[in-house]
Write a protein that binds this DNA or RNA. Structure first.
Lengths: 337, 337
DNA sequence: TCATTTGCTTTAATCGTTTAAAGTATTACA
DNA sequence: TGTAATACTTTAAACGATTAAAGCAAATGA
């Protein structure tokens, strides 16, 4: 069964392709197409089940109505969440999303963005990984509209939608202080990614402002590739006999899961033995014996904002924006009060 | 900065676009392009940073080298897993994947497939939901190459890649029987989806073959939209004072999570009070106090197979295939031995 | 010397749309 | 009656690639 194209409708009705195009694009009035022909064309389109060829349309209009999305790792909850909200908002605005996962690999990230650009996406939404500054700068120079989400580079002036990581971290620690904790550990990843470094800063400043002990051993930076072993060491340090912590803040959901597993293995009970607070949400928290308190990123809002900004950029409304969001605090029962 | 197109290179070097096209598509030898020109063209392409316009290419060749993927719900672990492996295999074969989530909604499913077809994807990989038979039949009639994954319709003769759900279920029950369980419950979803009905059948037959009590109350079908309340009822029934089960098999990961949460709430300990076996894998299992034994779907292999079959279809190698896979049994500690 | 072959290059149509610009009746007005 | 406006419709050139087919020298063969 051959594909029905515009020309087929034109022949079927006995008019030129121009008329058909006008009618099917809702320009019947504007282009003063006779009611009779307009009606015939509409009927024919239905009768022949005409499906416009978007590729041809894109080539002609130089617009694909497509957004390219590169997430850091599709296995992250953050990624599926943000993808979902970006898709929803994109659909609302009649855009399609093509996406890919860089798996935190700078080269793959570059490759992916190039593939997407070759496919003529109108713009990009990116969650860049380590060592991607260069590619971002190149993108910027090329004039491709793009928005960064979650992660950004303080010394590159781009549009981005991010969390106020400093504040989120500061507030989380303040909450722990307020609920009577005095020896607070912070477990983060070893990375140069700015947003995670901001969480460090929030922790440090909060401790200082509340005049708490800032034991250097309590701020841990685990190697992503050696999470399990580094976590084992970290938790042992945190639970140290002589000077144990009474609370720990994990900087990401994956850290929390690894940490809680380790606590399980050690037979440590939450929150009796130690209070636990987490960044991000994880489905896995559901199955833990006590709900885990955590700071939740407003993924829906962030995704929507990213699409909004990007679409503005695409439409040449040169909004230059850096948007910060606040976390929602989800109170569980993993913190002693 | 204007985009560099083929013509620009042609002008830059002083040849026709045909030559440029030949050289950049590796047909220099075949088309007997002079070494001199070939070299110049290659240099120019690099110098001008030429990026071919895939849209134009697709229009001309009538091939987009793109696969459309529609998953049932991006939030399922199954979806991210299969997406990942499909993406990887597609990339290996030089295809890009555009995907969307139908959120188990038949209308959205139809819409999505149409959007993808309009974008001229070369073929589709689909995880259809309830009430999508009609759309599948239409697709088949239209001649669009497609492969179903995970779910399929026994009375529609399509290509698919699926689990041997009957056997997986049968084997899981047999394992429970072998480890000494006698009163085995099976918690499934209320749905007409064939693959889940097959799991019912496996359960029933296994009970019969092992001459076990087949209490109708022990085969539960929960409404997906009322999972929590139905699960509460189901678990109460399973734990019934007078005739409690000694084991339960959950038909999906989400059911397991809901069930285990409920057990947590009731203060039931696994596997002391009851043995638990699950289909699928869940990150959340990690945080449960005891590793959950489960039957794991070989997502990587399934995704690869789906791409393989689809690409064959696209290349007119009319392989007509129904592929069944077996689950891997992952032994945890949630079953009393 | 003329025809043929070889080696290389260009021309131009094509994919399926969109959209200025031009074309052609018909009607209105002076 | 001639001109202008109105109401439509068609023509044809894009968009950026691919690719038969044709073109054109120079080399070869008879």
């Amino acid at each position: 069964m051959k594909k029905v194209v515009l020309k087929d409708i034109a022949q079927y009705v006995g008019v030129s392709t121009a008329l058909v195009s006008y009618v099917l694009n809702g320009q019947a009035e504007e282009k003063q197409v006779s009611k009779e022909n307009a009606e015939k064309i509409k009927q024919a389109a239905i009768a022949l089940n005409y499906q416009p060829n978007q590729v041809a349309k894109s080539l002609r209009t130089q617009k694909t109505h497509t957004i390219g999305l590169v997430v850091a790792d599709i296995n992250y909850r953050f990624s599926t969440g943000i993808t979902r909200s970006i898709e929803a908002e994109a659909k609302r605005r009649n855009f399609t999303v093509i996406y890919g996962s860089s798996d935190e690999d700078a080269e793959k990230f570059t490759q992916l963005t190039n593939v997407l650009i070759n496919r003529q996406v109108d713009g990009l939404i990116l969650v860049p990984g380590e060592d991607s500054e260069e590619q971002i700068v190149l993108l910027q120079q090329s004039g491709t509209p793009f928005v960064l989400v979650d992660r950004y580079f303080p010394n590159i002036d781009t549009n981005y939608v991010a969390l106020d990581n400093y504040k989120a971290s500061y507030d989380a620690i303040s909450y722990l202080v307020k609920t009577g904790h005095k020896k607070i550990s912070f477990v983060n990843l070893e990375t140069s990614l700015f947003h995670l470094r901001e969480r460090d800063r929030g922790y440090r400043d909060a401790l200082k402002d509340h005049h708490l002990e800032a034991n250097p051993e309590w701020m841990r930076h685990l190697r992503p590739q050696h999470l399990k072993e580094d976590m084992e060491l970290a938790t042992r340090q945190i639970l140290d006999r002589l000077n144990p912590c009474d609370a720990v803040l994990f900087a990401t959901d994956r850290l929390s899961i690894a940490g809680l597993k380790q606590f399980n293995d050690y037979g440590i009970r939450i929150p009796k033995d130690i209070s636990v607070l987490s960044f991000d949400e994880a489905d896995a928290f559901d199955l833990f014996y006590c709900p885990v308190s955590h700071s939740r990123q407003p993924l829906e809002k962030m995704g929507e904002a990213a699409v909004d900004i990007l679409v503005d950029l695409i439409n040449k409304q040169k909004t230059h924006k850096q948007l910060y969001f606040q976390t929602d605090f989800i109170a569980g029962k993993s913190c002693r009060e």
